[in-house]
Design a protein around this nucleic acid. Structure first.
Lengths: 216, 216, 216, 216
DNA sequence: AATGAATGAGACTTCATTCAT
DNA sequence: CATGAATGAAGTCTCATTCAT
């Protein structure tokens, strides 16, 4: 039961994903506009016409590549232990995990980072809107974490949660961009550690600041 | 020292600048790839061929537009009172001025922001390199400010200055991007104030934290 | 003489006809070039590949659609009471029946008319040749009717039968084309009645023939 | 004064017309769909891109070719001695002149005839509408001639002028189509003479009209 | 016999750049 | 110096046809 995926259907899904991945690779490496459908097709090993059996247009695949990537990132950001951190220490641990996850997604496929950070917003007004919208939703997610911290008492009560969320994400964005040019793990590690320290000192209340030094 | 700029020569410079500004406008509004040389020429009021008397190619003008923009931003960031801030209070004031300057440059011409933040890096690998290089040099500049703060004693002695510089700039970047979609001054003001607070609390030493609350 | 048409064979013939009819419908509605094999297949409810089990190519089915249509029209024109009209009155009655038949064929399926009158000749040189050839054979048929009228004495003895046949058919053609845009039966009825009158007065009669020779 | 046609402007007009004529030739010979922009460009001796300096699209030039052709035909039909024929003889003479004119237009460029009669209506629904609309306006023009004949008394008073106009034009259409395959002037001459006779006898005359009413 | 995914040639169109005037 | 018509390479997309299943 529930095996509607015949062999051929599965093969189609595989091809679809292969095209999607290849497109992300091409877009990330050469850029959206410098990439031709023929480049993608050649690299996948299909005819140009075959491409259009899986995607309606070049713009369509760009949308899907972006959606797919944003979905993966959202999943990475969301699929954390559901229990919210109760103490600042817990928060620090969780923040570390989030950073690690993002790092992994982006270092696993640097082309994904290049595409999201450098290319996607330049494709189109609509696409730019999507990217900025993604930043917004990431800010909303970050907001909820910070708000929880305020409620739990380990962040300052007078924190402008929304604004702080954007600021925090900006630091993560800077880290991601930094990694684009200098993929050395060391430098990146130093940067993320500092970011966590800034968050810690910058957001925390007066009372909980004595155990500040960060090990990871 | 002489005045070799004959009237003709001056006129040429004016035209050149007019084309440059128009190109920035077009690139910011429609995007680099969606902008044709004919769009720029039409808007300036010159013939298409005339464009090539002033710039070698489309890529060439993109480079010059970017260089010009980055130069203006560098100038805005650098041309501050040369005497470095001696106290945290001074630093806060200076940080406010920098933010104000950046804000002014970008809100004066939102298309410049769109071009730098969304478009420029997608033109080309070389152009992406330039943009990332600009971020690097901005980080270096920020570094020098922060290092001065460490030396002056109002920032933590163990601060990883380089990493912190990138983090701080990341927050400014986030602010600039936020402004792209929601140009309401209020929201932006809230965001920059929070950024300054985070810097203040996040970077400062233990001793100077009692006068933290920020009014502006 | 046997019944070699097994159930399977009969089914094939049905499918073939279904495809043929659907193709005529599509060609008439959207035009030959705007119709894709996939349109026909989808409408019939078969796979695209299946189409090629019944017809060799798109051109092939167009030929067969046209042949089929012309055959139906020929049949309609020919399968009249075999006894030729003996008097002008009889002729008038027969002409009425022919007109009725043509009308019925075309109003039953306006797409057939659109295909024959507007589309078919544009497919191909060869197809144009077929259409014009059909007009020729229709003229030949009309010729034979008119010749009979001359022989029977109710058409002018000096009638250029071949030329008149083409002229008469031209009027019918005009009527058919008129019906394409304005399918109102009234207008069509008025037109065919007038055509019959013109034939009647234009071809018949002793009385008005004395000044017939034409100078220009 | 009033010499806004600089040398270059005149050259552009020439090129435009050259493309237009070549397009008519190609469309008439090979058909609209079989003709590529590259065919037209090659034959004119320009680059493909140049074509698009003069016409917006393939569809655009088809429209203009058709409009141009219909305008030429309208001019040919309309630019006759303005004094309407007063007698049936005059009418016969005028009808002869009209036929001659049409003949000339079409035999001068048989491809024009092929395009108008066989191709144009198959390009598009909109184009078909134009062609049928042209037939309508030709019918309206013919109507006015016939109406004049009725008013002047040399056509039957009870003539359904509109319907007769379409019938007459149908005969001309048949003549034009006949000429497509058999361009021999003799055969065409015979046909047009017969058409004029049918018009003459079919529309004129008091004497033979008493048994005209048609039941079906 | 039927399927429908795959093919690939070819169509239209755009646009950065050149060059004769 | 300015013009803008001309160029032609390159890109996206369609669709009749084939073939492995």
């Amino acid at each position: 039961m529930a095996q509607p995926l015949s062999r051929v259907e599965r093969r189609k899904q595989e091809t679809r994903r292969e095209i999607l991945d290849t497109a992300l690779a091409c877009f990330g490496e050469r850029g959206y506009h410098a990439t031709g459908i023929s480049d993608i097709a050649k690299r996948v090993g299909i005819a140009q016409g075959t491409f259009y059996l899986y995607f309606q247009s070049k713009h369509d695949i760009a949308e899907q590549v972006l959606d797919d990537l944003m979905a993966r990132l959202s999943a990475a950001l969301t699929e954390l232990p559901p229990e919210a951190p109760a103490t600042l220490s817990d928060y620090r641990a969780q923040a570390g995990r989030i950073t690690d996850t993002l790092t992994r997604v982006f270092s696993d496929d640097p082309r994904a980072a290049r595409f999201l950070l450098l290319q996607a917003a330049a494709i189109d007004d609509e696409m730019a809107e999507r990217v900025l919208g993604f930043y917004d939703s990431a800010a909303a997610l970050q907001s909820s974490y910070l708000q929880h911290g305020v409620d739990a008492g380990y962040f300052r009560a007078d924190l402008d949660v929304e604004a702080a969320a954007r600021a925090v994400n900006g630091m993560l964005l800077a880290a991601a961009m930094y990694q684009l040019r200098d993929p050395a793990p060391d430098a990146f590690e130093r940067l993320t550690r500092t970011v966590r320290e800034i968050i810690y000192h910058g957001l925390a209340g007066e009372t909980s600041r004595h155990d500040a030094r960060d090990g990871a």
